[in-house]
Each structure stands twice: as C-alpha cells, then as structure tokens.
Design a protein around this nucleic acid. Structure first.
Lengths: 240, 240
DNA sequence: TGCGGGGTGTGACCGGGATCACAATAGCCT
DNA sequence: AGGCTATTGTGATCCCGGTCACACCCCGCA
C-alpha cells in the first residue's frame, strides 16, 4: 500500500483495529459495509484544513489516523482551541446532521488519514438504519457533554492556574499514565496553543509552568513533563 | 380542565399549537400518538427543580408552557446560567440518550407544564422509528450548535460590556422587536441573574447598564428597556 | 405607618492577568 | 559552522473587573 506523508494506510473499516473501542466505528458489519460504499478515504499532510467554521457543511470526517485541532475564532482574529481530536472521532457531525454551518475549524496537526462522507450520502445512510441513527445520536450527546464541560470550566471563573492544572491532569489521564506514581505528559502543543486551549495568554502559560517547576510539582524532561506531585496539581485544579 | 398554579393545561400534543413551529413536537401523527402513550404530563409551580446536574438521567422533559432556567455550577457555589428554555424545547435529551449524568440544572422560573418521559420508554420509542431518531439527532445538533456559540462568546475574551450588549441584542431579536426603530426588551431577570448569564458580577451589570443609559444607548421604562441606539449597541457587541 | 427584605446604585480598593518589549534558546536548513 | 525563524523566558506597566461596604429604593405586610 502506498504511504503518502509517511503513513501506513488503514484499508478497511471492517478490519480496522479501532473498531473495538471507538464508538462510531463500532457498527454491525452490514452497516459498516454500507458505510464503505459511500466513504472517501484521503490522506492529509500536517497543517491541512478539513473545514472552516461558518462554512456550509459538506459532510463528515472520521479520523482514522493522526490528530486534528478544532478551534473557534472571533472576527478579530483571536482563536480558541476547543479540542484535539484523535482517531475514531467524527468531525462535522452536528453541522452535517442539522445543515447549519460548521461550528469549528478543523486543521490537522499530524499527517492524517481521514474518511470523508458527503452530506447527502450520510443522511441517506442514517435514515436507512435506526441503529446507525441511534449511534449518531449517542455521538452527538457525547459531544454535547464535552462542550458543556468546556463551558463549565470557561464560565465559572477558574483562574488560569486552575485551568492549566485541569488540562495537564486530563492529558495525563489519557494513556493511563495517571495511575503511575509520576505520570508523564508529552507536550505536543506550543505554549501559545496551550494558552488558546485555556483562554489565556502565552506568557501566562510560560510563567505558570515555570512556577509549577519551581514548586517541584512538575519537572521537564525535554518536551515531556513529569508530574511529580499529582496531589498538589489536583489541589490546584479544584481550588475554590 | 383543572388549572394548577393558574395555568391552562395543554391536553394533547396532537392538538398543541406549538406543533407547527417547534422541532420536536413536529412529528408524524402516528409517532405523536406513541409519544402520548409514554408521556406523563405534570404542572410545576415557579422555582421547581426538574433535575440537577450530575444526577443520573431519569428521562426527558418537554416544556409545553412556561420557562425554565438552565444552569451549571461549580463545587464552590458559583453558578452560571446557560440558557432560558422556552415552550417546545426538550431538556435532558443528551443525558438521556447517552446515559451520562445531566450536564445542567433545570429550575422553572414560571409556572410550567411539562411532559416527562422515562428514559427506558424514550429509548424504546427512539429505536422504534428512524424518523423520530433522526429528529432527536437534529435536536441534539441544534443544542450542540448553541453551546458552541456559548463557548465562542465565553472563551474569546469578550469584555463584560461586549457580552452584555450581545445578550441585549439577542433578547431584542426574540420577538422581532429588533426590526423596530426602538426595540424594547422586557427584563425578566435580576441583575444578579444577568451577571450569571454573561459570567460577571452583579455590580458590573448595574454599572454597565447605568453607562448605557448615560450614553443614551438605552432608556429605562420601568422594567423594560428601550434600545435607543441599536447601531451603537451592535458596535459594542462586535468591539474587537 | 413603620418595618424588613430583596433588588439596585456607587465609591474605594486591589489583584490577576493582558500587553508590550526584549533577551535567551532551540531547532532547522544550506 | 553560521544564520533564521519559531519558541520560550522574564520584567515593567496598566487596567478591567471582582470584592467589600454601604446607602437607597421599592413594595408587601403586619
């Protein structure tokens, strides 16, 4: 199989390893085959734009490989990163279902393999099978849930330190790292981007990280952070 | 028909006036009849709690009459009003579908008539009919869309003035008031509650409103505001 | 008529964090 | 190596808006 942008390509959803643990990929074989019929598999380099907020929805994007940055931005150019999406996730779902414009902008931050499905095809696919439709409803609920948490953490006047601590804990819990005595977090984003995730300025992020290191809560090993005092970090995250 | 808490009761979804323009109520008659089978109609006084965030989802609530305040709150007691829900809206939908806890707290701010459907009944209802299922997906997309806007306005560091201006414009656009030369907005919330909607303090709201009046942008007529300079207000709302 | 409580108006103060302006690195590409 | 650009580190300054502390006002109620 060709490997554009230095990736191995996942050939079929039926044999995809993600099927087991990812919600949307986990469909009955019959539905999956129908899905195979309408999907377009594409590879993107880093920095590719999948779609832009306020665009008319063209369809959905399922991430097979790589990571995608989702952001919203204001007319004045300020932007805020809403989430980093990983393989198995479906992007543009709500816009495609409702017909309203995309709410976010999606840009790849790694080389990515993506399955695209055109809006009309997808809607037909949905309406053909209650099970699929229900899965989609579940997915949407999931997403709604996530954004609500976003609102909670944005709105309830957390200090920047609090939000940063929360973010680090969230990242460390991704790979089961948080179970270890000294979980490690690989920083895949710049301070600037971290700042955009928690709604603060780049300088503040730098300063806060420096503080955490000074207090022996964190420890830098190149671009990976070692959490030396998880309890203290949790304290910060829940500071009231 | 009895009128608890001084309300007229809407007897049936089939004859409900809202059917025409509200998404969820607008179902084929067959589905509506199935819905009638499983719904419980209840009347609540002002201040009644429909559900509380982090509770296990018991089911969905469809507002037939009255308005409901949706809020999230932090362990420290701070709370933030996410939206004021009106007749025709479905509450607790995403929690009920996904099985995750309710994301928000719902409290009536008027006497309300509400249709409640138990989770199991509702899920069965969904899985029985693709059309219904699809409607629900649409609803969820809608909600997702709204919260995204919330995130946008919270996260992109709007000043308090900006957010207040946005809120006022939004309210004035509800009843087509904004088309008039001097739209009126009836304040149904206290300054405290407005503050919770835009994530600021009560004092700031008071001061901002005073400012707007001083600059002849607003004008108070009892508890209704007259927007005398819509352009200026829009300017504030889009200040970059 | 006076009392009480919820809402509103306003001043004084103070701190978190944005912003500006550089300096110091760290990767890179040739 | 040497440069070039992107990222990170840090000080100085400033201002929005949170918080505290009262005064006032409106309205229902005994």
């Amino acid at each position: 199989m060709i490997s554009p942008y230095g990736m191995e390509i996942v050939e079929s959803c039926v044999t995809c390893k993600l099927r087991a643990d990812r919600i949307f990929c986990d469909l009955p074989v019959a539905a999956l085959q129908a899905f195979e019929e309408i999907k377009y598999t594409t590879a993107y380099p880093e920095g590719a734009v999948l779609f832009v907020e306020r665009q008319e929805p063209r369809g959905i994007f399922v991430i097979c490989k790589g990571t995608v940055k989702l952001s919203v931005s204001a007319p004045n150019g300020k932007t805020m990163i809403v989430k980093i999406a990983e393989p198995g996730e479906v992007l543009g779902l709500s816009a495609t279902v409702s017909g309203k414009p995309y709410e976010v902008t999606a840009v790849t931050i790694d080389p990515c393999q993506v399955n695209f499905v055109k809006r009309e095809d997808f809607l037909r696919f949905l309406k053909n099978d209650v099970q699929v439709c229900f899965k989609v409803a579940e997915q949407l609920s999931e997403k709604y849930h996530m954004v609500c948490n976003e609102v909670r953490s944005l709105g309830l006047s957390h200090s920047a330190a609090e939000k940063l601590a929360k973010l680090l804990l969230e990242w460390s819990s991704k790979n089961g790292e948080s179970l270890k005595a000294e979980p490690r977090v690989k920083l895949r984003l710049t301070h600037e981007e971290i700042a955009q995730m928690i709604g603060t300025s780049r300088e503040t992020v730098t300063r806060l990280l420096a503080d955490l290191k000074k207090h022996q809560i964190l420890n830098a090993r190149g671009s990976t952070l070692v959490i030396r005092n998880q309890a203290a970090l949790r304290d910060l995250a829940n500071h009231n």
